[in-house]
Design a binder for these strands. Structure first.
Length: 421
RNA sequence: GGAAGGGUGUCAGAGUGGUUGAAUGAACCGGUUUCGAAAACCGGCAGGGGCGAAAGCUCCUCGUGGGUUCAAAUCCCACCCCUUCCGCCA
């Protein structure tokens, strides 16, 4: 959400933002509705003020005066109710439009339509050359008894999977290593709820836009697709003491995504599943663009260095306008090399939002001048499992069918340095 | 799932239909006093919106949403949340 005043003063900017993000948004319509809203608000307020004055005289009035005032008030009330009804209707339309206003992308965001237009800004590591026929992670993990996809589908349906034996173990090793790695960088550890109410989803911008990609449970609750949602909800409606900023959080949670728009994509294996686990980094910082940029780079670097420590080849791209969400100002994707697909696949996204999310969630702090301001929010994947296993397994496969475990993970695998039959 | 109680400002806590956006404490900020501090005393202290160049005027907000009424923190209904007890459960 953006400030309506800002929108009114920067109509052209918003128009350009929508265009760059390839979103439909009618700024003129919003202004028109806002004009109506202001007009009606004025009228309603006028009548309410009148009513208040009368209320105060009624108390002191004699009984015959009182009767005549009451009569007038009844008329006023009818008129007021009429105006209020109209205002309520306009307000509803206004709110829906306000939720659809796109945030303004940063200057450095390239133009483009989809992820195909994302711009590579960094490449790290050597792509492995195999002197044998490399196998897919599905084949490797199945043959090494690390996963069971057939029974996964039998039990959980489409995109279902079991991790088992050394596959499950590897997953725990990655989690435990990630925990140590990111906590040592000053993030506070949280284990966050996945089942959340509507509010934090609206606040983070997942709703109303992505309703169909969320699983809904009873009682108006949803299964979140990321711990970002719960962590952003942590401080909803709170004023954070400024000395506590920036807040840096590492949160673990199960994640659920319906992947409704990707039915035919990545149907095999661990790339795209409905149910996975993720460590997410979240930062809340003071309301300054420079602060946001600084922490955005930092968050991104954290994950890059984590991947580097695992020695998996990756590249970082800056997402183009068309690949940005409604609220995102700028986003980097880190993509890991997947040998069998002969390409890089996304493992995480680092985004910043300015006050887009915190305005919706009402998360504020008092600045140096004791003025209340909305904090800025950012997030980045720390590590998502089981997707990371795809690159881990395919890149480090050996001629004999075994997998070499990255050095940093060995201690977390009880000293096991390779997975064999 | 059943029963009871409760949700008021940063916090504690009054307030059961009429100048109550809200008594009183505490905290916090400023001042007086002091060599300095404590104590005491004096003053300030909710957020958001609209109009306005500003001063200011005005509206909304006592968990949320509806309703009754000329008038709601106060009455009615629904929902959310908290506490205690019972049941169930890991």
């Amino acid at each position: 959400m953006l400030d309506i005043k800002f929108i009114r003063e920067n109509k052209e900017l918003i128009k350009q933002a929508a265009k760059k993000k390839h979103l439909e948004f009618d700024v003129a319509k919003l202004i028109e509705v806002d004009d109506k809203r202001r007009l009606l608000l004025g009228r309603v307020e006028e009548k309410r003020a009148e009513q208040k004055v009368a209320n105060n005289t009624i108390v002191k009035a004699s009984s015959e005066e009182r009767e005549s005032i009451l009569e007038k008030m009844r008329v006023l009330k009818a008129a007021l109710e009429h105006e209020e009804e109209a205002l309520k209707k306009v307000l509803k339309e206004w709110q829906a439009l306000m939720l659809a206003v796109p945030n303004v992308p940063d200057m450095s965001v390239p133009d483009g339509d989809s992820d195909a237009d994302n711009k590579e800004i960094k490449k790290w590591g050597d792509i492995p050359k195999f002197n044998f026929e490399p196998k897919s992670h599905v084949d490797i993990m199945t043959s090494l008894g690390m996963a069971d996809f057939e029974r996964g589908v039998k039990v959980a349906g489409f995109r279902g999977y079991f991790l088992k034996g050394s596959g499950a173990m590897l997953s725990f090793a990655v989690w435990r290593y990630a925990l140590d790695f990111f906590v040592s960088r000053g993030l506070s550890l949280y284990l966050a709820p996945s089942m959340v109410r509507r509010e934090p989803l609206l606040g983070t911008g997942w709703l109303p836009q992505s309703e169909e990609d969320l699983y809904k449970v009873q009682d108006e609750k949803y299964l979140a697709g990321t711990a970002e949602v719960a962590i952003m909800g942590l401080y909803q409606d709170e004023v954070i003491p400024k000395e506590e900023l920036p807040k840096k959080i590492l949160a673990f949670s199960p994640c659920f995504r319906r992947e409704i728009g990707s039915h035919s994509k990545d149907v095999k294996g661990l790339i795209r599943v409905h149910e996975f686990f993720k460590f997410e980094q979240v930062i809340l910082c003071a309301a300054s663009h420079d602060e946001s940029v600084k922490h955005h780079e930092e968050l991104n670097r954290n994950t890059e260095e984590f991947i580097e420590s695992l020695k998996i080849p990756y590249r970082t791209v800056i997402n183009c306008g068309g690949d940005l969400g409604l609220g995102q100002v700028k986003k980097y994707d880190i993509e890991l090399w997947v040998p069998l697909e002969n390409t890089y696949r996304e493992i995480g996204s680092a985004s910043y939002f300015h006050d887009f999310q915190t305005r919706r969630l009402n998360i504020r702090y008092k600045d140096e001048e004791e003025k209340l301001k909305y904090v800025h929010s950012l997030n980045n994947t720390a590590i998502a499992t089981p997707r990371i296993l795809v690159s881990l397994v395919e890149n480090f496969q050996q001629a004999d069918g075994s997998i070499k475990i990255p050095e940093v993970l060995v201690p977390y695998m009880n000293g096991l340095s390779s997975i064999k039959k």
